[in-house]
Nucleic acid binder design. Sequence first.
RNA 1: GGCCACGUGGCGGAGUGGUUACGUAGCGGACUGCAAAUCCGCGUACCCCGGUUCAAUUCCGGGCGUGGCCUCCA
Length: 541
Amino acid sequence: MALKLYNTLTRQKAEFQPIDPKNVRMYVCGPTVYDFAHIGNARPVIVFDVLYRLLRHIYGPEHVTYVRNITDVDDKINARAAERYPELAPEIGIRKLTDDTTAQFHKDIAALGVLPPNVEPRATEHIVEMVQLCEALVANGHAYVAADHVLFDVAAMPDYGRLSNRSLDEMEAGARVEVAPYKKGPMDFVLWKPSKPGEPGWPSPAGITVPGRPGWHIECSAMAGKHLGNVFDIHGGGIDLTFPHHENEIAQSRCAHGTPVMANVWMHNGFLQVEGEKMSKSLGNFVTINELLTQCVGDVIRHLMIQTHYRQPIDWTQNGLASSQLELLSWSEFISERCGEVAEPAIAGGACDADLISVLQDDLNSPAALTRLRELFGLAKAGKLSWQDFLANARFLGFKNLHRPGFFHPHIMGNVFESGPQPNLQDQRLFLQYRSAIANGDVSLAETSLQATRLRGFRLKINEEGVVFVGNLTSAEFSDLQIETNREINSRIARRSAARKAKDFKESDRIRDELAAMGIALKDTKNKDTGEIETTWEVMR
RNA sequence: GGCCACGUGGCGGAGUGGUUACGUAGCGGACUGCAAAUCCGCGUACCCCGGUUCAAUUCCGGGCGUGGCCUCCA
């Protein structure tokens, strides 16, 4: 089956035909860097990561160019920088804010298993290209200068509004925005505007003498043009960007370059709600990726995200996260049993499943891909498929911690020593935060969490499988909790086995309950060869 | 007001003009001293009202509900 994609431009699913199969080009609108990225920002990042992986699979990794920009010039950035760094010169404060926020963004999405794009251009490094675009548009009559602004003349473009399916008449009729007096047409939009004092500014195009700065849309036209050419294959982003952002990008790029399209395929991911409500700062239900990563491993977020088709709305809930985590737990328990002591399986081998690729090729049907992965899981459990093959497919979908089941347990292991303080809810949250920090590779958060728990009288230890052990030894020679713990657990299991042999079930059940109170679950299995009963343990679900 | 999505079993979530996807929870069974884990089995869902059709959850029309854009928010 060939790759089919839904195209907002045509409102149809159609077979994807790359302009050049040796260089498939995709542009996705990235974040404006002024604050922590939220879960809504994570959606396009994950969705188009799946597409990127699929394209690389089909055309070869070296034949795909993925560009995702960083918007680092914006009113919100200016305002935030002035607020946070009032003592710094504006350009220094802005640079610091955008650098820090970009670094944070990278850290957050790395935990989500997202591959880095081939190019990640910053708007401020493409001012020259933006100025050139403005010049070209003024020169060919698609833009005009008024009051030190460069404005796009919407009336000069016959099919303006095609992407968002709007006519100029409708938009003007329904427009709620006040029209600036210098605009020729009410829908004309800004390509370049004069900088106010204290705002970043650059030499202006088109004979404007005062310094200025770019409008919102022009940056993407400039960056896409520079890195992907005047016409490229796929342009993606959130559905809210369809109008005006993408519509205006198209207008600028096409009119500047004289091309019939900017990108052949336009893809838009659906919106996201939180616990049934729209996410907004005023409602106080703003969920940042960073915050989520203190509760769970990035794989869990990814699982929940791709379980819904990218064009469907998602209601993001705590409940959903928990069930995603549970499924990942069962996969990871299987994997860790099979791969044994290989802590960092640089697992060789494992092939991509044709059916999984096939459903993914149907407009990126990631939920169906997950269903296929579940079938593969069943086959692997039944011994009809190697665990490496299953793992390879899971990794293709971006899950990267399946060899560490400890990361997916709903709880961390309970208190294995009986004296001293018992953890309360807040402590347990800290334990989880520590585990997540380790899982997501956040070294500084891990250290902070460790310190905090230490102050509260607990000691944490995490093993290769991601299982966190908690003790409250007060001794300064707190050596190796894991060894202590294993010794403790094994001796209790031995006592229980003896009791069972003696048919003292009251005693054996008592020991099992005791272990359960520590968060340890026992499993009795019959050894197939010897017929002996063997007891294994794991952290409780 | 204009334009546009979405509404599936307890929950999550694909898909289809006629044959109970899938996951999870729940229930029943096997196994077990009892559990847990595992394995096997079970649920006959598609917002409402009309229409088209031999047949609609799936197509068409209307309604209701939720959400998005038209306000530089993915």
